[in-house]
Nucleic acid binder design. Structure first.
Length: 138
DNA sequence: GCCAACGTTGGC
DNA sequence: GCCAACGTTGGC
């Protein structure tokens, strides 16, 4: 089991939209490092969903339902997508400010490499964030 | 809306 | 293969 964090601008695809869709394919990744992370995702891996620019907060948890396959929105075979399904919304959203204030979350990509749209988290980091959000996964 | 940071592109 | 120029992202 691995843990990830994905970012999206809510003006492009919001958590609310995701909740309505229940499941979506995660397209639009056009960065090699993020792409490589996508390819590492395994079915059942848990993924935090972060709103960049507007809100700047972690909204909820999703899980991988289909591993990387060619991006259907482009002919360019360099890019892949995965399928994600919502698991649970955060009881309390966890803001970037909260994360920056937390001593154990100083080294995550969201803080250090703010432009990377798909990044790995350790189990500890993932669980720390869930705890901050007062959220439990059944 | 600005701008720093980062990634990509293309001329040499 | 280097690096300047350019485009994009995202925090502020």
């Amino acid at each position: 089991m691995n843990y990830w964090l994905v970012k999206q601008e809510p003006t492009k695809y919001s958590w609310d939209q995701f909740i309505q869709d229940k499941e979506t394919f995660w397209d639009g990744v056009r960065n090699y490092q993020a792409r490589n992370n996508l390819k590492e995702m395994k079915k059942g891996d848990q993924v935090l969903f972060y709103h960049s620019v507007v809100g700047k907060e972690i909204m909820g948890v999703a899980k991988v339902t289909k591993e990387a396959y060619p991006d259907p929105t482009t002919d360019d075979d360099r890019w892949v997508v995965v399928n994600l399904k919502t698991v649970v919304a955060m009881k309390n959203t966890v803001t970037l400010e909260d994360i920056k204030a937390h001593p154990e979350l100083q080294s995550i990509a969201l803080v250090k490499q703010s432009r990377l749209s798909v990044s790995p988290l350790t189990k500890k980091e993932f669980q720390t964030i869930l705890k901050m959000g007062e959220t439990k996964i059944k």
